[in-house]
Simulated assay, not measured.
Amino acid sequence: MLTPVVDEDGAPFWEYAARGELRIQGCADCGELRFPPRPCCPHCQSFAAEWRLMSGRGRIWSYVLPHPPLLPDYAAQAPYNAVVVELADAPRIRLVGNVVADPDAALDSVDPGRLRIGAGVRVAFTDIDGTAVPRWLLERG
């Protein structure tokens, strides 16, 4: 499995994830959210930052089912999904991940026929090599 590369700007994201919290970096001056994390606000050029707690809810903005797998380590799980999730609390923020049946399930644990653009999802975290990684669960209804 691929593990995230944690840099100085993104370290708080992963620290909050380890606590089961989805937080997004925002500008402490103008209030704009930004992802991926970076030192300077692209809107007002401030270096003042804060981390805002998100609800963890969103919707599938886009998705793909890679055929064949691009990386050999994923061959046993194909076909799996890769989704772009638009956050409910911050529609301009989109995160990439996978929709799974439960936080620790395999990447192929959700029938691809259940995926739809606009489908509601909620975040869940799983441990991959000591790092809490966000994944997405389909909302019911």
Results as ranks from 00 to 15, higher is better:
R122H: 11
G58S: 08
L53S: 11
C41I: 02
L87R: 00
C41W: 01
R19N: 08
V100R: 01
F47T: 14
P134H: 09
C30D: 01
P36T: 10
T126S: 13
L107S: 02
L22S: 03
L33S: 10
P4G: 10
L87A: 02
S46E: 08
N81P: 12
Y63V: 07
E32W: 09
A106W: 07
W136G: 06
H43L: 09
S46I: 08
L53N: 07
G56M: 07
I117D: 02
Y16H: 14
L107K: 07
L138E: 00
Y63P: 05
I93L: 04
A105M: 06
Y80L: 09
P91F: 06
F47D: 05
E50Y: 07
E139K: 04
A105S: 08
A124Q: 08
A88H: 07
L65S: 09
I93S: 03
P39Q: 11
A106I: 04
V83T: 04
V96W: 07
W51C: 04
A18Y: 06
A18W: 05
C40K: 14
S55C: 06
R23C: 03
A17S: 11
E15M: 08
A78Y: 10
R116E: 15
F13T: 00
W136A: 01
V96T: 14
G97S: 07
A119M: 10
P79Q: 06
G130F: 12
A124T: 07
E32S: 14
A101Y: 02
W51S: 02
G10N: 14
E21T: 04
D104N: 14
F47G: 14
F125M: 07
R34W: 08
A101S: 12
P69E: 12
D102M: 00
R92V: 11
A11L: 14
T126G: 13
D127S: 15
D73Y: 15
G10R: 13
G130N: 03
R122I: 07
A78E: 13
L137P: 06
F47L: 13
G56Y: 01
L137Y: 06
Q77T: 15
V121E: 06
E21R: 08
R34V: 08
E32T: 11
V83Q: 05
G56K: 02
R135H: 13
I117Y: 10
V133N: 01
A49S: 15
R135M: 12
G120T: 03
D127I: 09
P36V: 14
S55E: 01
Y80N: 04
H67A: 12
D9T: 13
D29G: 06
A75I: 14
G26D: 07
D111S: 11
R57E: 04
H43F: 15
A88D: 05
A48R: 09
P134Y: 12
G120K: 01
W51D: 06
G31K: 03
I60R: 04
Q45P: 00
D111R: 03
D129S: 15
P68V: 14
W136S: 05
R135A: 12
R135C: 09
Y74F: 15
W61L: 11
V84P: 04
D129L: 12
L107R: 09
A75D: 12
V99D: 04
F35V: 05
G118N: 05
R38F: 00
V6N: 01
G58V: 01
A76S: 15
S109T: 09
E15P: 01
A11P: 02
V121A: 06
R19F: 06
D7K: 02
A18V: 11
D9K: 01
R57C: 03
Y16V: 09
C30M: 11
A88N: 00
P72E: 13
G113I: 10
